[in-house]
Design a protein around this nucleic acid. Structure first.
Ligand SMILES: [Zn+2]
Ligand SMILES: [Zn+2]
Ligand SMILES: [Zn+2]
Ligand SMILES: [Zn+2]
Lengths: 141, 141
DNA sequence: ACGCAAATGATAATCATTCTCATTTGCGTT
DNA sequence: AACGCAAATGAGAATGATTATCATTTGCGT
């Protein structure tokens, strides 16, 4: 259990809700989960957690570096396991599918642009909104 | 008044609140304004508009292509005049200062990444979060 | 097994945004 | 210039996501 270590190091107790939530992300069935989705999945699994705890724990995990939070343009935000390698996202406007990508050149250019303006870059958000061409994607309208 | 034309074309009446709001953006004192900021500025100017109207009008202007909305990571969103040329943003985490930039290579790479995964790109959000080194920026903590 | 700070969960509170609806306004027509 | 009516407005209620409160429970060192 490599993550449990990080939990300890962050000064967080190993409680039941925290383990359940961490397990959800580690199980890997869904990589990107919103707070509401985490809550629902726990309820379905019979675990009795409060929504407030879910929000609290997700935020704590983010601060501890275990999870990364993504704010999408529609106002919703999702969390995903922080596996060290940074990446950006492509989101399908039709079906909500999320894919990840990493482009070293894009990353480098951002650093340049920030530096050129006298900013110390702390992070960035790059979300590409698109329509995917997958078979099960509803291309209505 | 070039913008008034676009208003007409969008089937929107030329009402007082709409002209006031448009004027705010065209005056150019502040390029990026949140709904709340627009509301406050109108009140200070003695104009009696409702907050609901501000939200409504901003959304209508966005749909009419007059304004562009930017959702920032802190959950806030701002609007700016749509002047045709796309650009991305650097936001100072300390003082909220917003600067704009455009990098053709970054734009091109995004298109490549999306295409390579079978997505038809519709748009993107690129926000760099940083600390600026301006004199009046509070580097607390 | 004990004790206490940390964590939880039910609920209320907050914040931005949207909705409702009675009243007002823009504007094409007499 | 006065009419008429759909479109627009504004005050306040409603919403949805997130955060705060606080009494109760739990993890964990002793
Ligand atoms: Zn991801
Ligand atoms: Zn799709
Ligand atoms: Zn600054
Ligand atoms: Zn801008």
């Amino acid at each position: 259990m490599p993550q449990a270590e990080n939990l300890k190091k962050s000064g967080l107790k190993m409680t039941l809700p925290r383990m359940k939530i961490l397990a959800l992300f580690e199980s890997g069935s869904e990589r990107h989960l919103s707070a509401e989705e985490v809550y629902r999945q726990l309820l379905q699994a019979g675990d009795d957690v409060g929504l407030a705890t879910v929000y609290r724990v997700l935020t704590q995990f983010e601060q501890a570096g275990l999870l990364v939070r993504q704010h999408f343009d529609n106002g919703k935000s999702v969390f995903e396991l922080n596996q060290g390698e940074h990446h950006d996202h492509i989101v399908c406007l039709q079906c909500g599918r999320v894919e990840e990508f990493y482009d070293a050149e894009i990353e480098a250019r951002q650093a340049q642009q920030a530096a050129a303006r006298g900013f110390e870059i702390q992070g960035h958000v790059l979300h590409i909104y698109a329509n995917c061409l997958k078979d099960d994607c509803p291309h209505r309208r």
